[in-house]
Amino acid sequence: MPTNQRTAADARVDVRKTYKLYIGGKFPRSESGRSYEVLDGRGRFLANASQGSRKDARDAVVAARAAFPKWAGATAYNRGQVLYRVAEVMEGRRAQFVAEVRASEGLTERRAETVVNAAIDRWVWYAGWTDKLAQVLGGLNPVAGPYFDISAPEPTGVVGVLAPQRSSLLGLVSVVAPVIASGNTAVVLTSELRPLPAITLSEALATSDVPGGVVNLITGRTAEVAPWIASHRDVNAIDLAGAAKAEGVVWGDLELAAAENLKRVVRPAGEGTDAVEPDWTRTPDMARMTAFLETKTVWHPKGR
């Protein structure tokens, strides 16, 4: 992000960052060649972000599908270590995240620090869940017969995620971490007006042993790209959290499109047709993990 306040003594011309998409472990520009201006909390220019397209979303789904078998098949212990590694890498770039969250969300330094701390801690929380889920959610079923019968959770597959519009980092982590903790892969549409922390997060993901394609991030117009994710036949589930306060987005329309292949849908918080963004600072529960888990039950006879 550019530093706007420069004094005469501080004469160096800084090197600005190009904010791009994150698909399949690489950082491409949008295939559409489009970008859009990102402003800070006070309306000043921050950067030109890539304006992702339908094609970018489809490429991201292909990458997420390709990454799914290996990530779902990784040991839970391994996934836990990888998620913890994300927290470690974020911690090392804490100052950068604080500055970006501060600029994007218009927060005070202190408030931005609190938010970044919570975002890092959230990775730690979910990292610890990876190898607990099967025991907490699964187990032996005492069937009335000579059978060994066991149920265990498995990831649903490729999950589309509309990241929250307001909480550009903590909200983002709060919806992405539970998806990938259990072995799903994600196609994430970032906050439309506050996309920069998401792209910096993707740099942390890329250097944290998160395999390419496990998380794919697309910046751009939510109303333009979300329908393509909602209707995509190779996406198994969708989190509509980011439909709240997204310009031109009616979450019911997205759920309608998602019905075409019976996607599992997490509706946005709120009552009726309203959609509100929840308070992401609250300690999460298991709901965002269980929403993207299937239960598999295996039977086998017992006998001598």
Partner: peptide, 30 residues
């Protein structure tokens, strides 16, 4: 959602039943 190994079509109230993908969502039992 259900894998029967060396058996088939077994059901029990304690045993969750239900599908992946377009076989629907949610489980019944257990």
């Amino acid at each position: 959602g259900v894998v029967w190994a060396n058996t088939f079509n077994k059901f029990d109230p304690t045993s969750p039943f239900g599908g992946y993908k377009e076989s629907g969502y949610g489980r019944e039992g257990g």
